[in-house]
Design a protein around this nucleic acid. Structure first.
Length: 507
RNA sequence: GCGCCUUUAGCUCAGCUGGUAGAGCAACGGACUCUUAAUCCGCAGGUCCUGGGUUCGAUCCCCAGAGGGCGCACCA
């Protein structure tokens, strides 16, 4: 090939090295390949094995032995060790890596010259036979190597990798190429979701899809994203929860439904919050909150085993086995435990306001006693709940869709799962009395009018659905991102979301 | 939104309360037929995030801004 065309003929303004020089060099090489009749982006290459399969089949090959097993493999060049007339190339696919043993005497002068020109990051296909080197490294003794896709941009450092977190999130493709840990996170995430689907299928749940664009954003206390539909000329909200549509399906008699879907909340970002995140919600006719706690334990423990092979997770450096039963404690009891004072929504508001002040909780004027208790819980007890704990019996005020506890009209049949100081799941016995639901919605609407932006509104269609009759039902929601963090050991939610929300990059 | 930290070559990082920058890897030229981040020799590569200011002189000090991280607030 015309090697002179690949270097040295760049314009006077081009730098002598650096990124631009490198890209120019490689694009010039692509032109040279095309000029010589070689397609740098050929249509296909058929492989006989993945690299993991080869390791499984031939991993036990004795050092220095050669088989007569022909193979065709493909992968990205990660390392290249040039020995003069012998080149060792480490290629990677999603199942692992393998070494290509490239001898000039095997591939010929022209073939060898082309292989010398390959860059780290290029995708290649190779044909050859299986062998193990004298040192025992499983290799493909290569008879030919073909370029499958030329990389124009250089890879991150082959040893130190890519560690700049901003670049890792913005250029996830580069992160996935070089960081095993990044690939592992998303493998775990996939296994958790796949495990959920298996478990739910086994329990007779049907997976459904409900609207993302809502006329009213309900089902959770949160600030929605607002958008607009042009043809209908109407304001729409991106959903903040799956709940209200899924329960309409329970009214319709579907009995066991779930959805794993993206929800959107227009709130702050942190290492535990991304504006869009994934929620699994399920609803089971003839279930209640105690059954939901059982399903929660089963789903999460099974997912941990499926994803990592173990039900043991590490929380803040401490190993915790999810398979042992989880503590259950009422919210009011946990607050009492943390503050040394009994609390209950039926207490005078002034009493709770005073206690809140002692714990530096800033009470909003529109908060009732139930909301103050929930905030007190958040300020005093929540962060100490490292081991999985079902916090139960939330006040009615903060649970507008949950059934009241028959033993205490101020509390609900509800639970939240807390692990490692953060909320992971939420469930309850669903309120199915349309008249009571209307009254609760009206309370919400009043709170909204009084200044609580996160309060709900009266969802007339949902009330109409309830009027057709919803069976007694248990419901559950699990935050998939946070669960993935727990099981994978990720420190930031951005490590378990492929493309986390960032401010736009300036090019 | 507030506070603290951070931004230097494609990547990973040095850079002395101020004298306009270095290394390793990658790249480029060369040697090498069993390497494992191959090794060895040589060579090149910079908007020191941006804009102001102070100074004879700023990667360094000051101010403003941008991106990112962490905490707080909000929330899941």
């Amino acid at each position: 090939m015309d090697h002179e065309a690949t270097v040295g003929d760049s314009g006077a303004d081009d730098p002598a090295a650096g990124l631009e020089f490198e890209r120019n060099r490689r694009t010039a090489h692509i032109d040279a390949l095309r000029g010589a009749g070689t397609n740098p982006y050929p249509h296909r290459f058929d492989r006989t094995h993945t690299l993991g399969e080869l390791r499984e089949l031939h991993g036990a090959l004795e050092p220095g032995t050669e088989t007569d097993v022909p193979v065709r493999v493909a992968g990205r060049i990660m390392l290249k060790r040039d020995q003069g007339k012998l080149i060792f190339i480490t290629v990677q696919d999603r199942t692992g890596t393998i070494q290509l043993f490239v001898s000039k005497s095997e591939v010929g002068e022209d073939g060898f010259a082309a292989i010398v020109e390959l860059d780290l990051g290029d995708w290649v296909g190779a044909a050859g036979i299986m062998m193990a080197t004298r040192k025992g490294e499983l290799s493909v003794k290569t008879s030919s190597v073909s370029l499958l896709s030329k990389a124009v941009r250089p890879m991150p450092d082959k040893w130190r990798g890519l560690s700049d977190v901003e670049t890792r999130y913005r250029q996830r493709y580069a992160d996935l190429i070089v960081n095993d840990e990044a690939r592992r996170m998303f493998a775990v995430r996939h296994e958790i979701i796949a495990s959920f689907r298996r478990t739910l299928h086994d329990h007779g749940f049907i997976e459904v899809e409900t609207p993302v664009l809502h006329v009213e954003a309900g089902g959770a206390p949160a600030t929605p994203f607002v958008t607009h539909h042009n043809a209908l000329d109407m304001q729409l909200y991106l959903r903040i929860a799956l709940e209200l549509h899924l329960k309409r399906l329970i009214v319709g008699g579907m009995e066991r439904v779930y959805e794993i879907g993206r929800v959107f909340r227009n709130e702050g970002l942190s290492s535990r919050h991304n504006p869009e995140f994934t929620l699994m919600e399920l609803y089971q006719a003839f279930g209640d909150y105690t059954e939901m706690m059982g399903i929660t334990e089963h789903l999460i423990t099974t997912a941990a085993r499926d994803a990592t092979g173990s039900s043991v997770v590490t929380i803040d450096g401490t190993e915790i086995d999810l398979a042992v039963g989880w503590r259950r404690a009422r919210m009011i009891d946990l607050v009492a435990e943390a503050t040394g004072r009994e609390v209950h929504p039926n207490q005078p508001r002034e009493t709770l306001v005073a206690l809140a002040a002692e714990h530096e909780v800033r009470v909003q004027p529109y908060w009732g006693t139930g909301k103050i208790i929930e905030e007190l819980f958040g300020a005093t007890a929540e962060s100490s709940l490292r081991e999985p704990t079902f916090v139960t019996h939330h006040p009615v005020e903060v649970s507008p869709l949950a059934r009241v506890d028959p033993a205490d009209p101020h509390l609900t049949e509800r639970f939240e799962l807390h692990v490692g100081g953060r909320e992971l799941a939420n469930g309850y016995s669903e309120l199915n009395d349309p008249r009571e639901q209307r009254a609760r919605f009206e309370d919400e609407q009043r709170a909204k009018d009084a200044g609580n932006l996160e309060a709900g509104t009266v969802d007339e269609d949902y009330l109409r659905a309830l009027e057709y009759g919803m069976p007694p039902t248990g419901g559950l929601g699990i935050g998939i991102d946070r669960l993935t963090m727990l099981i994978s050991g990720a420190q930031s939610i951005r490590d378990v979301i492929l493309f986390p929300t960032l401010r736009p990059e300036v090019f």
